[in-house]
Nucleic acid binder design. Sequence first.
DNA 1: CACGCAGTGTCGGATGCCTGACAGATCGGC
DNA 2: GCCGATCTGTCAGGCATCCGACACTGCGTG
Lengths: 255, 255
Amino acid sequence: MICGATEQYPGGTMAESGRAGRRREWTRAELIEIFGSVLLFSRLPGPQLEAVALAAERQAFRRGALIIRQGTEGDGLYVVASGSVLVSREARSGSKRALNVIEAPGSFGELALLDNRTRSASIEALEDSELFCISRESFLGLLSKDPRLVDGLIRELGRMIRRLSDQVADEGLLDLPSRVAKTLLRLIDHQGPLKSGDQPVVALTQGKLADLAGGSRQSVNGALSSFVVRGLIRIETRQIVITDLAGLRARAGVT
Amino acid sequence: MICGATEQYPGGTMAESGRAGRRREWTRAELIEIFGSVLLFSRLPGPQLEAVALAAERQAFRRGALIIRQGTEGDGLYVVASGSVLVSREARSGSKRALNVIEAPGSFGELALLDNRTRSASIEALEDSELFCISRESFLGLLSKDPRLVDGLIRELGRMIRRLSDQVADEGLLDLPSRVAKTLLRLIDHQGPLKSGDQPVVALTQGKLADLAGGSRQSVNGALSSFVVRGLIRIETRQIVITDLAGLRARAGVT
DNA sequence: CACGCAGTGTCGGATGCCTGACAGATCGGC
DNA sequence: GCCGATCTGTCAGGCATCCGACACTGCGTG
């Protein structure tokens, strides 16, 4: 057991459930495609990518499953191959604050590579998802063999810092509706460019969106309703469709 | 002019003003001491530290001077040799949010090394301060010559991420008094261990502390007053003395 | 197919925090 | 040593947001 708990399907087979469901193994080409799309590994050529993928342990999680519990031991880096996960921190009081959503292809757990502290956040699967887990030891081995990985790591960390600085600054500087708008924009712009004609979609319950925006579910619902009135978005169950991207940008106060 | 604007003393000599005042040049030993204490350079041996110091341009700033303006061009890394600086972001509206205080010995501007974007935050001198500025070009040169620098950079970035994650989570999860308490704790624990007998001191005006904690000056003042009543702190002009560290930790909700 | 649970929409009261205002204290420059 | 600017302390009014409550909808599960 390289990467901690693996009993993600406690006594049952994985149910096919929407687009995330997937039982077959990945082909070599697919793996290279996925790992190469992760910023951390983006500088690596094909063969090295394959080596990374080989060092990883495949794991699958159902929608809602807890992948990492904040405060526990664990030193693995995870690559999200399919599906998406929610990064959140919880206070002693039980209330929790969501920090980020990571969609395939993406990665999380980079911090555990740098120090040996306990997990700083909890990770939950937003849909049925498949992850690849690479132990700290394996990663450091790869790192020493290929300095291009260092480059990717630094870029990844830099991006995280910019994002987090933004979030801290927005918090308390913007009112809730603006924060909601900004959160929506943040979520759609780090899911790649969309196919032409399609409208960007944020697939989250309003509750989780509220955790991300730092407000109560009710208030976020109110903000969203006001956006609907102005034709900026359309609300569907478990997801929000952006119908007027420019208008939403304006509402968020982005130039 | 390697590191941007340098006219920090517009037509005047630097006034001796408290502990920060300092006119003479630094000795080689002092430079090594300072640079070696910066996490970014902590892994480098003496000779390399000296090389780094030689690549840096010395600059001095008066209390209150604007060192970097958010949104401007600039690619230098700064080392704080004496004094302290405030990192903050401002919104279009003019209101600003302080992110962090960096005291000597410390560094800022690491992000500019990673990408070529404009400055993501403004930097202001909290006291008369002396900085050493290293251009991106110089730094990358040093980086390629000594891989130990990479190690330091990654550690530095990792620490920033943990700190920022904490801040985002606290925001909106804690009420203002708790946030104020936590901000005070954060400020004193990354200024090194104190001499025995001394009580930790946070040298900030209540206004700037409010910017850091994400509240209004008035509310922060109220929170501080309540701490005084409970004997946790003592308020002096332009600084706050922690008289009951354990009590303050409890108030912040830290175990 | 029917039930249960999760998600959505909406109220109204309670309140923490902000805004604006002002007086006294302290600092720093002339 | 004086004076302006900065900093601290405090109050009252207003409002954004939270919280608890409840009805309705729709998904997925047995």
